[in-house]
């Protein structure tokens, strides 16, 4: 039984993410390659939208991966590589949109919703009369 549970756990948690990076694309310098991988996994594949360019086997994603590596080899910092792609495709390619004027609503709305909910909960709960013992339903059952 333990073995079966263990096998199921393995299946659930040991699934390797499918990466589309071909060996031929990889940089020989492992530090640079690691940077390329981390940058690529923050860039959206524009053809498939819910995949990163690191995960996608689309031609356009591959072209973008090559550009990321080219910029790294050319000496760009991670931020500069991101900027290079953002300059062409806009913030849209970033899987984590930056906090700025046009994304303020996106970032702040969840907090606003939380504060609103807490305020409503507080107002509602505070206004409710405290139940006294005699009204408890259990008393009715006890008869």
């Amino acid at each position: 039984m333990i073995r079966i549970v263990f096998a199921i756990m393995l299946m659930l948690f040991n699934v390797e993410a499918a990466h589309a990076v071909l060996p031929s694309e990889m940089l020989t310098n492992p530090v640079q390659e690691a940077r390329a991988r981390s940058i690529s996994s923050n860039l959206r594949c524009l053809v498939c939208q819910n995949q990163t360019i690191d995960d996608s086997s689309a031609d356009l994603a591959r072209d973008l991966r090559l550009i990321v590596r080219e910029r790294i080899v050319a000496g760009d910092g991670d931020g500069q590589v991101m900027d290079y792609v953002v300059a062409r495709y806009g913030n849209y390619v970033l899987l984590k949109p930056p906090f700025q004027m046009d994304t303020a609503l996106l970032w702040l709305l969840p907090f606003a919703a939380l504060i609103l909910a807490l305020a409503v909960a507080y107002a509602t709960l505070r206004g409710r009369p405290v139940l006294d013992d005699a009204d408890e339903p259990n008393d009715i059952l006890k008869g």
Binding site: V47, D59, L60, D63, L64, I67, R88, Y89, G90
Partner: peptide, 13 residues
């Protein structure tokens, strides 16, 4: 062929 110009144009498809 390499898609470089097309990427400069921000084309996605």
């Amino acid at each position: 062929q390499g898609g470089r110009t097309v990427i400069d144009l921000g084309v996605s498809g």
